[in-house]
Simulated assay, not measured.
Amino acid sequence: MSRPPTFTPPSGVRSVPLRTERGTFAALEAAPAAEPAGTALLLPGFTGSKEDFIAMLGPLARAGYRAVAVDGRGQYESQGPADDESPYAQAELARDVLAQAAAVGGSAAPVHLLGHSLGGQIARAAVLLDPTPFRSLTLMSSGPAQVDPSQQEKIALLTQALATMSMGEVWDAMQAMETPVPEETDTGGDSAAHEKALRDRWLRHSPAQLVATGRLLVAEPDRVAELRATGLPLHVVSGTVDDTWPVPLLDDMAVRLDAHRSVIKGAGHSPNTDRPEETARALVEFWDGTAAR
């Protein structure tokens, strides 16, 4: 689970409703004072939310990019059914992303798409449905197929727990599954308040969304060849360690994709929260490079 440093938008970042043809999604947005060099759409991972990118939004805006991070359907502040899994099928979530891209940019101004972990697999599915709304795709700590067997076991346990326990009870079980990042994320000094905010976020997730997307993570096929065939500029980002998809597997995927590769020193599975400034710089370097293509 990603641990954002705060749930309060800092100066220059605003909370906005992203209205699309498929409904309204909760979003955080930051934009440069001048005309942006481009727009980026950022998708969080499993159990995550738009706040997982909150520390990157300011640096991206200062570098000249408008950045919009969204809660997917059934994640945190974006509504979704609690007991119906059908809206969380991968194709449905991919269509949500296409609608979000149209709302923030559209075919007249293709967007840079980024997905973290589960968000990367949903982003890939959206690109494979229709690559035209996108200027590039970044897969952050998101591998070529299903997650590592150890993570599959954790997801199976979580799914079983969701069938018999309350969300509050499951939260307590989730804490035992957490793997610490290489260094502690700065939480502003009030760790108790931060833990409460993390718990509150968990309680607002849809159980059906968690079960359905967990199933996606343990069954995702390898679609690397299909993605490379789109011809879209591709970027693979990770930390130096990853317990969800091993870093050598991500290295190999980048080669197979002929993708730009960034490894963020000192980061684990969530470079966006572990090392936001460094991760933002890597993204900007890649996005700037696509301007000449």
Rank of each mutant, 00 (worst) to 15 (best):
A108H: 12
K154V: 11
R95F: 10
A101S: 09
E92P: 00
V97G: 11
V127G: 04
L162I: 01
V147L: 09
G143L: 03
A102V: 06
Q121N: 05
L162T: 15
L128I: 04
S117P: 09
P131L: 07
V111Q: 03
T132L: 13
L128W: 00
G143F: 04
S150H: 12
G120C: 03
G120Q: 02
A109I: 00
G106W: 07
A125K: 07
A163K: 13
A109N: 09
S117L: 06
G143D: 12
A123T: 04
G106R: 14
P110V: 03
G119K: 05
R135S: 06
L162H: 08
A94I: 02
A102C: 03
T159I: 14
A161N: 13
G119H: 07
L158C: 13
P131I: 10
D148H: 14
A99M: 05
L93N: 12
Q160N: 15
E153C: 00
M165S: 15
E92I: 00
T138L: 10
P133E: 00
H116L: 14
Q100S: 09
D96L: 10
A123D: 03
H116P: 03
E92Q: 12
D96E: 08
K154S: 08
T159N: 15
L93E: 12
T138F: 04
T138N: 02
H116E: 06
P110T: 04
Q151I: 09
S136T: 11
L157M: 15
K154T: 06
L93P: 05
Q160S: 14
L118D: 03
L158T: 15
T164R: 09
T138I: 09
P131H: 02
M140V: 14
D130Q: 14
P149W: 10
P133R: 07
V97N: 09
A126H: 01
D96V: 04
Q100T: 05
L98I: 04
A109R: 14
G106C: 06
M165G: 11
Q146C: 10
G105V: 05
S117C: 09
A161H: 10
L113V: 13
G115T: 06
H112T: 08
A123I: 04
L98K: 07
S117V: 05
S117T: 08
P144W: 04
M165D: 15
V104I: 15
T164M: 13
E153P: 00
T164E: 13
P149C: 01
R135W: 01
V111P: 00
A101R: 07
G106T: 09
L158G: 15
A99H: 13
L158V: 14
R124H: 01
M140Y: 10
L128P: 02
G119F: 00
P144L: 03
L93S: 12
E92A: 14
S150V: 09
V104K: 08
F134A: 11
H116R: 04
G105N: 08
H112P: 09
H112K: 10
A161C: 11
A163W: 07
D130E: 08
L129N: 01
A125Q: 00
G115N: 10
P149D: 00
E92H: 01
T132E: 15
L128Q: 01
